[in-house]
Nucleic acid binder design. Structure first.
Length: 932
RNA sequence: GCCCGAGUGGUGGAAUUGGUAGACACGCAGGACUUAAAAUCCUGUGGCCAUUGUGGCCGUGCGGGUUCAAGUCCCGCCUCGGGUACCA
């Protein structure tokens, strides 16, 4: 009987669903193990073969852990708020909730066919009000919290208010906005309610402030830094400009140090940790104040090289720096203003594109060097960014290349401060060498000089030691419809929290999903978008206006792993017992593109919830694995320019051609084009003519990102239809190591398909291929093959080497086939070994073997070394490191015995050619090497 | 520029601690079975040279080095992929 995968796979998928095989329960008798995939955004295009790669790997791991006796939690859900659904809604008028529902159903259908062990009873959707109620609740916790540097944790805001009443903000060491004023208890008491709220906004972890944002006019929305690529929006590629706007932000910078140090113990790849470290961008140095000649203003700069302060020959302010206006002298005013105007017009994209183009303007003002008292000319230049550090630099052209370039361009002096450094052609950025021309720092090596310089700066009270982070607070508001409403209303312009009993604050209905005519967010269109603290949401005209921006995509995904632990709880984001039992994720798998976005935010929220005492751990995932991207192999046809003629690849050099993507489904494994299918594909190819080589049209190849627009998408459904889900699972794993990027190649899928058939035949060696299994005791050879497989596959599973485990299955099945092995004692453990990769066929075989319960209830087979014991070892014999022949010898021989045996072999004598070996290296059970 | 990763047959890849390079597959070639095809099975398959056979030389991006022994370790380059960027 041939293996009928279609009915078998459907049967077991139904069985798993009906028997709730994968429903996780809090069971204290087994250790818990939480396996999580980064949940998908359900796009309209459905899954392509790249998506399941990670899901298959994590599924194998989850199934393995289950067989090893763990109580496994392996959930799945959808990150269902997002821009594509909204864009589609804008174009078609369809409510995003409707298209999202359709897309989710399609995803679910596709996922179900692959046979995953997900606990679907825990499915979540970030756009479900029952879910985002808690996203909003966490937002309010952040709104009602501040960060105490003394306690190094987040604390409820009411503690801060209590302190203000007693002592004002003197002695309060908090992470707060720049320029927060000092006040006493008396002053606090005299403030109006509004003034107090304004002050508190400087401390809240979710706060409203005017900030420079990436405004995208085409999308009518603000984008986060990591959503802007090369000055255009990541999605859609629309231009982005800088604009000041009142925005909700998250004070993630409060957690910069903990986000950095917390990385060390995590079992994440070094690459990802390094990315996060660079993103956080800690630098240590000093903040120094420079006075301004004939002016009361002080210019604060941050420098990592305070030792080079005697090398300062000018200062540069960002054109946006607030002091520029006050210090510019009358005669330079026109020039400076013109320069500022010019900078404003340039988008970030242009500024990026013109790195080599050095520009700036002199303000006419001079700073006073804090040590020498010398006048230092103050310039403005757009290479200094307003948003980083203090927006001003003390320029040390001898020690910083950008300063050097600027000095060189404007003919400013370049004084050297490092002994022996040559600064005539470029700056000397090395931290080696000793200081010179630097008064009290002369003769000191750089590292010591830095210390001494900072001490001197602090002594003279012209600055302080300072740690600076590149990490910026995260903009949290979006001018969009399809996101979580921010649960805030405005009373006299002061933001106030919506009462938790009124959560979820549900998205209102709107007539259109576009911004309003005056550029207000789509929520402004709602007719019911006001709030009364007594009644909840009320019609416009009553109560107070609600916030109209919505949360960004990363809000819902910043805590979703916690919701899976108790997905239907209506009283809390998750019950205490659930978070205490399941804790954080043991194994998290997803793409490395989320390294600095999602993975930083989810760590931030986790630390915050930990600080507030809601969860007993402060990292979301102990182990993180990044799966590689599956690339598509695009196929090209070559059209002769100006004609409708297509020339085969080998002949294209003879013509002037342009390459055009052809759908991969028209091209076979020999790169031959199905001409009829191609002609029928598009109207303009109907009359196409073809110049063939050898009677065939050969296409070109290129590895590119798998994408609809490149016509190289391979759909998993079709492969499952043709080859089976088990074959797809095995094949995707067999392609290579999980973390590597690799081009998709359907050809090899025949190999794993044959393997499944071969496996099936091991169990069906009876007449007419009927099922037959022997109860006889296994032979030594069978046991050896079995235990070799157990040992190798177990190690593969532990190392997540799912590609080599597939090879090892093949080796085992090939071996048992040639041994004609059909013994239960062999086939049962083999079936268990395979069941994580190919669960459908394994379940079927398991039940044929007479088991009444699912194979997931089985135990992973134990490896026993005694079956591997070798009597002989086949020694490779090398001469000067070159392997010449092998010699089987008893495994128990001593070094001397081995040498004697090898020396007496006639081949040894041949290679020695009468010479006496200088040295003989013998490593028992490894190698014999003669040095001649 | 900087940071991370990778480079092995025609292809995907294997070699876990320095110890027989190319496991396992795909593809290809030849053969068996078949009226034929599919399916299945068998044989061969890194390159070059030699050959009845035994064999010889070269070979893991390139150039050096360490070592009895290097795909693996060290130094210097090249190429590709990913990330990131006027970050003071």
């Amino acid at each position: 009987m041939e293996y009928d995968f279609k009915s078998t796979e459907a049967k077991w998928q139904k069985y798993w669903a009906e028997n709730k095989t994968f429903h996780a329960k809090q069971a204290e008798d087994r250790p818990k193990y939480y396996v999580l995939d980064m949940f998908p955004y359900p796009s309209g295009a459905g899954l392509h073969v790249g998506h399941p790669l990670g899901y298959i790997a994590s599924d194998i791991h989850a199934r393995y852990k289950r067989l090893k006796g763990f109580n496994v939690l392996h959930p799945m859900g959808y990150d269902s708020f997002g821009l594509p659904a909204e864009q589609y809604a804008i174009q078609t008028g369809q409510h995003p909730a409707v298209t999202t529902e359709v897309n989710i159903n399609r995803y679910r259908e596709q996922l179900d066919k692959i046979g995953f062990s997900f606990d679907w009873s825990r499915e979540i959707r970030t756009s479900d009000p029952a879910y985002y109620k808690w996203t909003q609740w966490i937002f309010l916790q952040l709104f009602d919290a501040w960060y105490s540097k003394d306690l190094n944790k987040a604390v409820p805001i009411k503690d801060l208010i209590d302190t203000f009443v007693i002592q004002g903000n003197k002695g309060v060491d908090a992470v707060c906005a720049e320029g927060t004023p000092q006040f006493s208890a008396e002053e606090w008491k005299e403030m109006s309610k509004n003034e107090r709220q304004d002050i508190l906004l400087n401390y809240r972890l979710a706060y409203l402030s005017e900030s420079e944002v990436n405004w995208c006019p085409a999308l009518g929305t603000v984008l986060a830094n990591d959503e802007v690529k090369d000055g255009v929006s990541e999605r859609g590629g629309h231009p982005v400009v800088q604009k000041k706007m009142m925005q909700w932000s998250m004070r993630i910078t409060a957690y910069a140090e903990r986000l950095l140090t917390g990385l060390d113990p995590l079992d994440w790849s070094d690459a990802i940790k390094e990315l996060q470290r660079n993103w956080i961008g800690k630098s240590e140095g000093a903040s120094v104040f420079f006075g301004v000649k004939d002016n009361d203003a002080k210019i604060e700069v941050f420098t990592t090289r305070p030792d080079t302060i005697f090398g300062v020959s000018f200062m540069v302010l960002a054109p946006e720096h607030k002091l520029v206006e006050t210090i510019t002298t009358a005669e330079h005013k026109a020039e400076v203003e013109a320069y500022i105007e010019r900078t404003k017009k340039r988008t970030e994209r242009e500024r990026l594109a013109e790195v080599k183009n050095i520009t700036g303007a002199f303000t006419g003002a001079y700073a006073i060097h804090p040590f020498t008292g010398a006048p230092v000319p103050i310039w403005i230049g757009d290479y200094v960014l307003a948003g980083y550090g203090t927006g001003a630099v003390m320029a040390v052209p001898s020690g910083d290349q950008r300063d050097w370039d600027f000095a060189n361009h404007f003919n400013l002096p370049i004084p050297n401060v490092i002994e022996g450094a040559d600064v005539s052609e470029s700056a000397s950025e090395s931290k080696e060498g000793k200081l010179c021309n630097s008064e009290f720092l002369n003769g000191l090596p750089v590292k010591e000089a830095i210390k001494k310089a900072i001490d001197a700066i602090e002594e003279r009270q012209i600055g302080t030691r300072k740690v600076n982070y590149k990490l910026r607070d995260a903009v949290f508001g979006r001018q969009r419809y399809w996101g979580e409403p921010i649960p805030i209303y405005y009373k006299n312009g002061i933001p106030k929290a919506v009462k938790t009993e009124h959560l979820p604050l549900e998205l209102p209905e709107v007539d259109k999903f576009l911004p309003t005519e005056d550029g207000e967010p789509p929520l402004q269109r709602a007719t019911t978008w006001n709030y009364d603290p007594e009644k909840g949401v009320v019609a416009n005209g009553e109560g107070f206006p609600l916030e109209t921006t919505t949360m960004p995509g990363w809000a819902g995904s910043s805590w979703y792993y916690l919701r899976y632990e108790d997905p239907n709880n209506t009283n809390a984001f998750a019950d205490e017992s659930a978070v205490n039992y399941w804790k954080n994720v043991d194994f998290y798998l997803g793409g490395s593109e989320h390294a600095t976005g999602h993975l930083l935010y989810v760590r931030f929220w986790t630390k915050f919830l930990f600080d507030m005492g809601y969860i007993p751990f402060d990292e979301p995932a102990q182990k993180l694995v990044n799966q590689g991207m599956i690339q598509g192999v695009s196929k090209f046809v070559y059209r002769v320019e100006g004609t409708n003629q297509f020339v085969s690849k080998g002949l294209r050099k003879e013509y002037k051609t342009s390459a055009i993507h052809a759908d991969v489904s028209f091209v076979n494994e020999h790169n031959e084009l199905d001409i009829d299918a191609f002609k029928a594909w598009r109207e303009d190819f109907k009359g196409a003519e073809f110049i063939l080589e050898g009677g065939k049209y050969i296409c070109g190849n290129e590895v590119e990102k798998m994408s609809k627009s490149k016509f190289n998408v391979v759909n998993p459904d079709e492969l499952i239809e043709q080859y089976s889900a088990d074959a797809l699972r095995l094949h995707e794993m067999f392609l290579g190591p999980i973390e590597m990027h690799k081009p998709w190649n359907t050809q090899g899928i025949d190999g794993v398909t044959k393997f499944i058939r071969k496996l099936w035949r091991l169990f069906h060696s009876g007449e007419n291929e009927s099922f037959v299994v022997s109860e006889e005791a296994p032979t030594k050879a069978e046991l050896k093959a079995l235990h070799t497989a157990i040992q190798k596959v177990t190690s593969d599973m532990e190392r997540l080497a799912f590609n080599t485990s597939v090879s090892n299955f093949m080796v085992a099945v090939n071996e048992f086939t040639s041994l004609k092995s059909n013994k239960r004692s062999i086939l049962e453990p083999l079936t268990i070994l395979l069941s994580c990769h190919a669960p459908h066929v394994a379940e079927e075989l398991w039940s044929l073997l007479g088991h009444e319960t699912s194979i997931v209830e089985a135990q992973w087979p134990e490896f026993d070394e005694k079956h591997l014991a070798e009597d002989e070892f086949n020694y490779p014999v090398s001469f000067n490191g070159k392997m010449r022949f092998t010699l089987p010898l008893s495994a128990g021989l001593s070094k001397d015995e081995i040498q004697d045996a090898v020396m007496s072999d006639e081949r040894t004598q041949k290679y020695l050619d009468g010479k006496t070996p200088k040295k003989v290296i013998i490593v028992p059970k490894k190698i014999v090497n003669f040095v001649v």
